[in-house]
Design a protein around this nucleic acid. Structure first.
Lengths: 342, 342
DNA sequence: CTCCTGCGTCGAACCGGTTCGACGATTGTG
DNA sequence: CACAATCGTCGAACCGGTTCGACGCAGGAG
């Protein structure tokens, strides 16, 4: 491969002149600049990334730490990842995808070795072990997901509290008085998945205020367990007329359960989910849902991260915690409850 | 951050001695080695990735080029990616995930700049524009998917021809004489997705040999189009008793269609799919299927790639084209056809 | 006509590692 | 006891860029 030395020789100038001609950081005569550009083109010159990183302390690579737990729903992850990689590329960055189980060690490795200019963390836990490492790292970081302590970090997440309230309000307004909320599996909570209880507690609180009965249960992440669970819930609460779903696997499994039981949506049962439009399309779900906007969240995190990476001023700006407002996409899966219990 | 110079000073030796003590590439006295290791630990020394890359011409990073077309089924992709990232990490490599639409340009960029030691290509087209670039690149590459011309490349793929034959044979043996095969959408074929016609043509040929009628159609990748298509197919071929599915979206949509039409599987209809076990679990599919083994394919590609990267000898070995044999996972969704047409 | 200014270019140093050749001290051999 | 081989360490060069300071030369001002 051609080095900048080769280009300089070909153009008959010094290495530094070639560098300045290519970067434009110092005035160079039109004639020399053209010779250098021509030489670079002729030799198909591309700067060596390692040398560039060494000289500039910039790698033009962002780290993306995602964790895949056995019991989590992998397909939903893809959209967050694409939101990050696509936005990063638009801004001139490549993305190092790290899926190592030991996220803390992985983060330590990629920040210490200076492979990346910044890091996006996903699957944030309430008390995430990666956060102290990120705070101590020389590179800035951004989180998709809300941890217990946001100090020193830029955080982006859906407003799950508001999502819970919107769900309850929507069905309450239609006249429903007994609802079921199915959340993520309990081990997601044990692992510190705060969004589960953020939505649930807000929904419970709002239901209490409105005088609505809300049965809140943990779900499962797999078939056939989640199908059995749904059936059990319908058996246990025959007078419930509305179902709130904060659990992708349950949403995906619901159609076959309602078919089997002869339940009609929305005639017999009103349903509201919480997932992305992409997810709904993929799983052919025609329930009204709260858009979780994974691509937007990924994109916002990257934009803020790159701002901090590139501008020394931005580095000292106060940290932001930004929530996306839940948007209810109506697909006509909700209606007033039937006058008599089903 | 601490550099190796800092470690050397702390240990009271020269930089080169510190380097040798850490790498073990030259004999170093036990006493000095211990002083160096202690200093490195005390200073939390981690080599700078850029400097390492510059000095050794190795980055310990692999590129992973995946393309996400609007009309493709993103969730299936995740498992290929995890197969690659997990195996790469086991072998000591990180993964640069590139999802740029212009794959050829992206490949050119990451190979020319020497950011990666090798590349895994996914979503291979019959006449893939990235292949000439990969062949000309200084780094080795591996493909997941079979292109028209495998010269100079290591290729890994499912044996789609055999998959088509296995599907047909299995239903023929049970007594079925009229089958429907739903493939990927036509634009996947136009884009050069060879696996579509590899499975289809082999199935058609085998059906001809066996005296079985096989209706082969292109599918859709989205709801509700794919559901409509399935309904149309059942209307058009009422006497077909078996369904072969080489289309993730169609498999995901099938349960609701069969429920709606009152079709029972396998009583009224025998079904065989082609996807991964992970996919089946995610979508609660209980059809027998041919395992497409995305994680195994990703893993195999990485192992071969790393062999070539690390061993100068392996670099000159002949290139391999390796097919995974289709394995039929039986979930009891096939049975002999009913004596009278449904 | 001289002096100053500033443009365009060059040489050298630096980023942080690895690695080659050399060299002094120790040990073994004849 | 002299000499060679080996061990352990050091200094210097190199990988391929960027960037700082200096310098020659042209043009404008005094």
């Amino acid at each position: 491969m051609a080095t900048i030395g080769d280009v300089a020789r070909e153009a008959g100038v010094s290495r530094s002149t070639a560098s300045y001609a290519l970067s434009g950081k110092r005035p160079i005569s039109e004639e020399v600049r053209e010779r250098v550009l021509a030489a670079a083109a002729a030799l198909a010159y591309t700067p060596n990334a390692g040398a560039l990183a060494l000289a500039t302390s910039r790698t033009k690579v962002l780290g993306l730490l995602a964790q895949f737990h056995e019991d989590e729903f992998a397909p939903a992850m893809m959209q967050y990842i694409l939101g990050v990689t696509d936005t990063a590329r638009d801004l001139g960055y490549d993305t190092l995808l790290v899926t190592e189980a030991d996220g803390a060690r992985a983060l330590q490795r990629i920040t210490d070795s200076r492979m990346v200019d910044g890091v996006v963390l996903m699957n944030i836990a309430q008390d995430d072990l990666r956060l102290p490492i990120l705070r101590a790292a020389p590179q800035p970081g951004a989180l998709v997901g809300l941890p217990g302590d946001c100090a020193g970090l830029d955080v982006f997440d859906l407003d799950f509290e508001e999502a819970g309230r919107v769900m309850v309000d929507h069905l309450h307004r239609l006249g429903h008085r007994e609802l079921i909320l199915i959340s993520q599996p309990e081990h997601v909570v044990e692992r510190g998945g705060a969004y589960v209880w953020r939505l649930r507690d807000a929904a419970l609180e709002r239901a209490r205020q409105r005088g609505v009965t809300l049965h809140a249960v943990y779900g499962e992440s797999r078939q056939p367990a989640v199908g059995r669970l749904l059936n059990g819930l319908f058996d246990a609460h025959p007078s419930a007329t509305g179902l709130l779903i904060n659990n992708e696997a349950a949403a995906a499994a619901l159609p076959s359960v309602t078919y089997q039981r002869g339940l009609r949506v929305p005639d017999d049962l009103s349903v509201i989910g919480r997932y992305s439009a992409e997810f709904a399309a993929t799983f052919s779900l025609s329930y009204s849902f709260i858009e979780s906007a994974p691509d937007r969240l990924g994109s916002m995190a990257v934009r803020q991260l790159v701002r901090r990476v590139e501008s020394p001023a931005a580095r000292n700006e106060p940290f932001v915690v930004r929530f996306i407002s839940p948007e209810l996409v109506s697909l006509e899966s909700t209606a007033p409850p039937r006058p008599t219990a089903p």
